[in-house]
Amino acid sequence: MPTVFFTENLQRHVVCPPGRVTGGTVRDVFDAVFVDNERARGYVLDDRGGVRRHMAVFVDGEPIVDRVALSDRVGVDSEIFIMQALSGG
């Protein structure tokens, strides 16, 4: 199953342990990992469900292309890192 890791900086505001969930796209994985952590969803995604302007998402080391619909493919053993951009501070 894909594994989702959250930036340490987010832990100051909301507890976000790594999550192992099923899903074929970033959207699927996020829906699964946030289902029990709605507060965290709002810290990573905006009102429209896209990635916040100064957040970054990597799948197996590559930044995702589709930051709005989150349609980037995810493999069964993928590692997804939710990071914060250097901008936005």
Partner: peptide, 8 residues
Amino acid sequence: THGHFGTK
């Protein structure tokens, strides 16, 4: 309004 995490 966090720079990265939105408005709370």
